[in-house]
Design a protein around this nucleic acid. Structure first.
Length: 589
DNA sequence: GAGTTTGAAACT
DNA sequence: CAGTTTCAAACTC
């Protein structure tokens, strides 16, 4: 029925609804990108920074709302020209919907390929379409979800949005404010996420991937209308799935799921809870305690593996959830991901970091221009002494050489432990004349609307540097070098910061890993393959915010994060193998 | 790999 | 809004 072959697709009814307003504006309106947080927020007007994935990830959050998963906006080349962003709403919890996501072992995962036959990949049945991406290398038949059929695709998007304005929104969201309040009341440092619509499972017990909640590695919530749900906190069935260190073994999980669904697990040895034990409202948020605290950690393990975006957002200090301190408190019933670094990164720290980087940048600029000035002065002095042209030439060469040396010396001083990324200096090659800023710098600044950063920048001369120095330095190469150097210094420090964060996270991870093993009483289980991801080698295999997600006592927390970061010496750096040296990866990683 | 099961999406 | 159908992924054999 429905769309039979040969019938007009999409249906006429849907086609008629096209308006001039659509789809870009409509999309922009309907996709708040942050789970309903932004629409009323002044910054919700789809600024370029918001739709830029990198920016979205490192964007400083001036607003206090809990930050949901990062929503990547995929702008196809064609759509870029048409200013109609396709929206790739990432289900951050679902590996399959994260193109190029990595498996736990770090192996790059191929983008999910759909196998649609009858939907032309223009309905939400199609995962590619649902995720806002073109089909690429899929096994689909009669696919319209491609550039060649952009018009049809757009209409389909419109039709889909007409049916459901939230169709392309992330299905998994951070809980609304009330939940955050709950968190605050319980003193928990947990991020609460749940399925927006909830699942409607009947037979799977919400313990199979048929269940969107389970697939998302989140617990069923009050939004769900599932039957015989076993995907709730404290569920022995669910716990059995992930018990021990089988967290990565899907076969084992599925076996356990089957056992759970058929009743083999859950009625033996444990008091079976009522069917609707999943949270309804806040009942369980406050009252019910978790029988087994270790299960709580398990929840973190599991969820962490899929919710990297959430991890990132929880890292943001402005997220009060991430800020909450006591990692040893395990009273809440809502299991959600919480970053290992949540205790380490404080809002204040990030502000300080920004300020320090700005100051640092300003200092570099100042030092650089001072040195250039002295060089210039020396040259001029010598010119007065040796007015002949050949000497002038030599002096000019000397001047240029000195300038280069300044840059390279400073560079080497700050890259003693690395191959200095030359690409930094390329950034300014095609800078505009006004206030040149390389992509790297822009990335560092992340959000140009961030008042903290910008406010801090001005008094320290960073913002003025470009103008001032332009009068001091010859335009072009010298200025490019100056900016490149300035950027390099700042990025280096920032990298140091990230390195240290990684290290702290790993310390916690390691501690928690052993702690979890102990508390889980999993003598029967084989050693974990996935829980304790010890970073080996360069450490750049995993991003700084990768899935080390284990709760541990905050023993590793440095007293003053930023201060210690900035004070990091190059010798310290050598302890921490680097982040990617490639300029592009420096911040994106 | 084919067939079955499942639940979301689409439709009535 | 509830019931039914369609669809494609998940799952089983």
């Amino acid at each position: 029925m429905g769309e039979s072959e040969g019938s007009e697709f999409p249906p006429k009814k849907q086609q008629q609804s096209e308006t001039a307003d659509f789809p870009a504006k409509k999309l922009a309106r309907q996709l708040d990108f942050t789970q309903g947080v932004l629409p009323n927020h002044p910054q919700s007007q789809l600024s370029p920074m918001v739709v830029t994935p990198l920016s979205a990830q490192c964007q400083l959050q001036p607003h206090p709302q809990p930050q949901p998963q990062v929503v990547s906006i995929l702008v196809s080349p064609q759509q870029q020209t048409q200013q109609q962003p396709a929206v790739r709403v990432v289900k951050p919890e679902s590996p399959k919907s994260r193109p190029n996501a990595e498996l736990k072992d770090g192996t790059p995962k191929k983008q999910k390929q759909c196998n649609c036959k009858h939907s032309r990949c223009l309905k939400l049945y199609c995962e590619c379409f649902a995720s806002g991406t073109y089909c690429d290398g899929c096994n689909c038949v009669n696919c319209y979800n491609n550039v060649e059929n952009e018009a049809a695709r757009r209409e389909a998007v419109e039709a889909t949005l007409e049916r459901n304005p939230n169709a392309f929104r992330p299905k998994i969201a951070s809980s609304p404010h009330g939940t955050r309040d709950s968190r605050e009341e319980t003193g928990e440092g947990l991020v609460f996420v749940k399925h927006n619509k909830g699942c409607h499972c009947k037979k799977s017990g919400c313990l199979k991937k048929y269940c969107e909640c389970f697939q998302a590695n989140i617990l069923c919530s009050e939004n769900c209308k599932c039957m015989d749900c076993k995907n709730f906190e404290g569920s022995e069935e669910r716990q059995a799935l992930f018990h021990g260190d089988h967290g990565n073994n899907m076969a084992y999980i599925q076996q356990a799921a089957n056992a759970a669904i058929t009743g083999a697990i859950g009625s033996s040895g444990y008091a079976s809870l009522p069917v609707s034990r999943k949270r309804k409202g806040q009942e369980l948020f406050f009252g019910k305690t978790v029988k087994d605290p270790s299960f709580h950690r398990l929840g973190h393990f599991q969820q962490a593996s899929h919710i990297r975006h959430a991890a990132l957002s929880s890292l943001l200090p402005s997220n009060p959830v991430a800020r909450a301190g006591n990692t040893t408190t395990l009273g809440s019933s809502k299991i959600t991901y919480r970053s290992l670094l949540a205790d380490i990164i404080q809002s204040q720290d990030l502000k300080e970091l920004c300020s320090v980087l700005v100051v640092l940048s300003g200092e570099v600029a100042k030092t650089l221009s001072d040195q250039r000035n002295s060089t210039k002065k020396r040259v001029e002095d010598q010119r007065d002494t040796f007015p002949d042209s050949s000497t002038q030439e030599r002096l000019q060469s000397q001047k240029e050489f000195d300038a280069d040396k300044i840059v390279s010396n400073r560079s080497s001083a700050n890259h003693a432990d690395e191959g200095a990324p030359d690409d930094c200096s390329l950034d300014g090659a095609d800078m505009p004349k006004g206030r040149p800023m390389s992509p790297g710098t822009l990335a560092l600044m992340c959000d140009e609307q961030d008042t903290i950063f910008m406010a801090a920048a001005s008094p320290n001369g960073l913002m003025g540097y470009g103008c001032n120095s332009s009068s001091q330095l010859p335009c072009g190469q010298g200025m490019t070098e100056a900016h490149a150097e300035q950027e390099r210094i700042v990025l280096t420090k920032f990298r140091d910061c990230l390195n240290r964060l990684i290290t702290f996270g790993e310390i916690k991870e390691t501690k928690c890993s052993s702690l979890a093993r102990t508390e889980l009483g999993n003598e029967k289980g084989p050693p974990s393959k996935g829980i304790a991801n010890t970073r080996t080698g360069t450490g750049s295999q995993q991003g700084p915010f990768s899935n080390g997600v284990v709760k541990v006592p905050p023993a590793a927390k440095p007293p003053q994060m930023v201060t210690s970061i900035v004070a990091t010496s190059s010798s310290d750096l050598q302890k921490f193998p680097s982040l990617p040296q490639n300029g592009d990866n420096k911040l994106k990683s």
